[in-house]
């Protein structure tokens, strides 16, 4: 008996030391993960004037200044316009893409029709081509439709959603797990496929709908390459990624780096809040996706 209690005690001790180590590791990891963001926030308060007047790099602003933020909202800068563009693109892409993915997933999961396997294999093969390959061709297709330059925003929505049917894996995997017996029962009661989809499947698919919408919403914020191609020098059609990236890469924008930090922060905040709020669904989606492959 006493022997046993010693063992329990030693295990407890072992667990405590283990936990201390774990805490230390977690704290170190957190510091590493947070440092760049903290630096970004700090530097965003260094005004351009201060940034230009010295050739040192440092984190803590000598004078805390909101100049960069003021500039972003001033009329000299298209930032607000870029922001709205991106928001519009992200919202539409999110809605349309989710609808398309749901349709495709339902059809592939629940229905058996001629060409089903062929379609799935064909899309799998298509997905193996690198996306940038077709960029120039897509650009000219869009241009012929009048959806570049001034029309870049609808153009990007179109390109962002047109091929979204190919990303059905996660959602189809989820539908596969909804018992077919439910459908069968409804069919016996005389419900059509469309009705079953709307009344039975969709309500049960809430997590995957949110996951799909969230992922689709986040992608356009990062689209630099194709967005800059489609805007083709028309600055009012830029999205935030194109606009802000120019400030870092091109010499034309002297001393815009801290403004970039401020702009980046303003972009990151809402996306991050949204992500955090819907994190639960995101976890469900990625886990499901990883398990289904």
């Amino acid at each position: 008996m006493s022997n046993n209690s010693v063992r329990v005690a030693s295990m407890k001790r072992k667990q405590t030391t283990g936990n201390i180590v774990a805490y230390i590791v977690l704290i170190v990891i957190s510091i590493i993960w947070l440092t760049p963001f903290v630096c970004l926030v700090l530097q965003s308060f260094i005004s351009r004037a201060e940034f230009m007047s010295t050739s040192e790099v440092y984190l803590i602003p000598k004078t805390w200044s909101l100049d960069n933020y003021a500039y972003l909202f001033s009329k000299d800068c298209n930032f607000v316009r870029w922001y709205i563009n991106t928001l519009v693109i992200a919202t539409f892409v999110s809605i349309i893409q989710t609808a398309i993915v749901l349709c495709v997933s339902y059809a592939l999961s629940r229905m058996r029709f001629a060409g089903r396997t062929f379609l799935m294999k064909f899309w799998l093969i298509l997905g193996m081509f690198p996306g940038f390959l077709t960029m120039i061709c897509l650009y000219f297709i869009l241009r012929e439709m009048g959806l570049t330059q001034a029309g870049a925003v609808p153009g990007l929505i179109l390109v962002g959603t047109a091929s979204s049917g190919m990303g059905y894996y996660v959602c189809k995997g989820f539908f596969d797990t909804i018992p077919k017996a439910l459908d069968e029962a409804a069919r016996i009661d005389g419900a059509s496929r469309a009705r079953i989809f709307a009344i039975i499947t969709l309500p049960m698919a809430k997590p995957i709908v949110i996951y799909t919408a969230l992922v689709a919403f986040m992608a356009p914020w990062c689209d630099y390459v194709f967005a800059s191609y489609v805007a083709f020098g028309y600055s009012k059609s830029y999205n935030v990624a194109v606009g802000l990236q120019n400030w870092v890469w091109t010499n034309d924008y002297q001393g815009f780096f801290t403004r970039f930090c401020a702009g980046g922060l303003l972009v990151a905040i809402p996306v991050t809040i949204l992500f955090m709020a819907l994190q639960k669904y995101y976890v469900e989606g990625v886990t499901g996706g990883a398990v289904k492959g």
Binding site: F37, C39, W221, L244, V248, F260, V267
Partner: peptide, 14 residues
């Protein structure tokens, strides 16, 4: 998960 949420063009360029 902050690194998933913050758009990469911001975090990676920085």
């Amino acid at each position: 998960v902050l690194t998933i949420a913050v758009p990469q063009f911001v975090s990676l360029l920085y």
